[in-house]
Each structure stands twice: as C-alpha cells, then as structure tokens.
C-alpha cells in the first residue's frame, strides 16, 4: 500500500470532487447552449471544473513528494460551539432572545461552565444586556426577548 505524502492536497481534492458532484447531481434545468445559456449552464461548468480540479488534486497528492500533515481536528470545541450556534438558530423564533442566547453561551463556554459557573453567568447577562440594548432597543429588530 503506498503512503500518500501530500495528505492535504489529497483530501482537498476529494472535497472539491464531492462538492462538484453534488453540484452536477442537483444541476438546475434547463442547461441551454453556449449562446443561450439556461440557469444550469454556468453551474455545470463549475461542477465539471471542480471535479477536474479535485481529480488533479488527488493525483498531485498521491504523486507529490512534499510531505504535509493534517492539523488535528479539535473535535470538542467544534462540536460544542457549533451546537451552541445551531441551538440558538432553532430557538430564536420560538423561545426568544434570552433562552436562545443561554444555549449559545453554554455552548461557547463549554470548558468553563462547570469550573467557573459564576463567570459564565456574568458573561451571559452581559451578552444579553448588550444584544437587547443594541438590537431590540436601538435598531428595533422584531426579535422577542422572551417567548
């Protein structure tokens, strides 16, 4: 089994090709012709281009002698921070600013919430006060503070 040296280029190529294939699979219709392009023509060029760039990238990754490493994915912060944001998105219409911000702050401060609960509470109150003042009072966005 040969060892891929340029891992970054290899996986980037895979990523490009996957995105290109999704674009081609979901291609808007009709495609049209070069002189009368439909909505799908330009995306089709991009999809084909991405698949080609991806394939070339994979080939370069396999054949290249340049050794690259992939930086380890910090799974824990990624998971908690993104979860906090997703929770905020899903709650903001239904539960209002105060509740949705609570979940976001809990997600972002995941590593401190148990060790320094008071500090996290203070951060939450400060963020709630700031966003309430700026977005609801000052620029009057139609966001409810509570449900």
């Amino acid at each position: 089994m040969l060892q891929i040296q340029n891992i970054r280029q290899f996986w980037l190529g895979v990523l490009f090709a996957v995105i290109g294939l999704i674009a081609l699979w979901e291609l808007p219709r009709p495609i049209g012709t070069l002189t009368a392009m439909g909505p799908g023509y330009f995306p089709m060029l991009l999809g084909i281009g991405l698949v080609l760039a991806g394939a070339a990238s994979v080939a370069v990754g396999i054949r290249s002698r340049a050794h690259t490493t992939v930086e380890p994915l910090s799974l824990v912060p990624t998971f908690f921070i993104i979860s906090g944001i997703v929770a905020m998105a899903l709650l903001i219409d239904r539960a209002g600013l105060a509740v949705s911000l609570l979940f976001m702050v809990l997600g972002t401060c995941y590593d401190r919430v148990l060790k320094h609960p008071l500090e996290v509470a203070l951060i939450y109150v400060a963020v709630l006060g700031m966003t309430w003042g700026v977005f609801i009072q000052l620029i009057k966005l139609p966001i409810k503070l509570f449900w």
Binding site: T108, C109, T131, F135
Partner: peptide, 12 residues
C-alpha cells in the same frame, strides 16, 4: 470572554 459576544452579534 470575547467569544460569546462575537458569536451573539454575528448570529443576530
């Protein structure tokens, strides 16, 4: 301390 306000402002 900076992250929660940055994310809050970004999201809203």
């Amino acid at each position: 301390v900076l992250y929660p306000p940055i994310i809050a402002f970004s999201c809203i």
